[in-house]
């Protein structure tokens, strides 16, 4: 064995330059954080912040005991909420499928024009939360369920479209080639070669999105787009915190049930 004295006594995983770069990176992040913090809190009124624990205790105190007598009145809005989520998801799927077909590299009829447009639709829909869509739609077509349904549908296009076009791109090209080799036309290649391969994915994605949409549709009422959120808004406007507790617990229950159903369906498909 070599004498240990002849070997270097320090060892470091990274070279000096990389270590320096990493440290500068961290330092820059800290500096950026401090600067952001200062800009952000410029307008903060610290008296309110200091007062927060008292406020929290106050609200907390008023939230219990929950006003259970309010529950029956919530059933119709809850039904509306479920409809917003379900019909919205349906509308989203119907619009997302063609967008995904245009966006997937192996099914798009034009890579240079239609594909970028489809991708932009997907990004635009994904970037804008359903609550913002609802806010817009309420001012355009008036408050109500329809605005909520369209808002959910518009937001779902991006989500479903993105996952679905990725699923289409992951199809087995051999199966598609085999259908092409029989002399089938493009529409037949789609229905026999592509559709059977991606159907389970489409079901899975749709159910997954439905579950998220249930969650999102509970708050659309805050901007007037119908459902249980309307009740939440009304109760908060009159500071009826004991009613708010009931609504929140109902929302929580609905979300848990819908998550369970969605997991069940997805397991059945796969």
């Amino acid at each position: 064995m070599t004498d240990t004295a002849s070997l270097p006594a320090d060892w470091s995983y990274r070279s000096r330059a990389t270590r320096l770069a990493i440290w500068t990176g961290w330092l820059a992040l800290v500096a950026l954080f401090v600067w952001c913090w200062q800009v952000m809190t410029e307008t903060t009124i610290w008296a309110f912040v200091g007062d927060a624990p008292r406020q929290a205790a106050d609200i907390g105190g008023r939230m219990v005991p929950p006003e259970w007598g309010y529950l029956p009145e919530l059933m119709l809005p809850l039904w509306d909420t479920l409809n917003i989520a379900t019909l919205g998801t349906l509308g989203g799927v119907v619009m997302a499928v063609p967008v995904a077909l245009l966006a997937a590299r192996n099914t798009t009829p034009s890579v240079t024009i239609l594909r970028p447009i489809a991708l932009f639709i997907i990004v635009a829909s994904r970037s804008i939360n359903s609550l913002i869509w609802a806010l817009l739609l309420v001012t355009i077509i008036g408050p109500g369920l329809l605005a909520g349904i369209i808002a959910i549908a518009l937001r779902s296009i991006g989500f479903i479209g993105k996952l679905f076009y990725e699923a289409i791109e992951e199809t087995d090209p051999k199966q598609i080639e085999a259908i092409q080799a029989t002399g089938a036309g493009p529409a037949e290649v789609l229905t026999y070669g592509v559709v059977p391969q991606v159907m389970p994915a489409l079901w899975g994605i749709s159910v997954f999105r439905w579950d998220i949409n249930i969650r999102e549709s509970t708050i659309l009422g805050l901007v007037g787009a119908g459902g249980i959120g309307l009740k939440l808004n009304a109760s908060m406007a009159v500071l009826a915190w004991d009613q708010v507790t009931v609504i929140l617990l109902l929302i929580l229950g609905t979300v848990i049930v819908s998550e369970w159903i969605s997991a069940l369906i997805r397991r059945a498909i796969i």
Binding site: M40, T44, V49, A52, I59, L131, L222, I251, V255, I256
Partner: peptide, 21 residues
């Protein structure tokens, strides 16, 4: 995870006042 951002925000606004904080 179970509390939605918007609902959390409503409560925190009620406690800490309006604004980015």
């Amino acid at each position: 995870r179970s509390l939605q951002e918007v609902i959390v925000a409503i409560f925190l606004v009620a406690m800490f006042g309006f604004g980015p904080f």
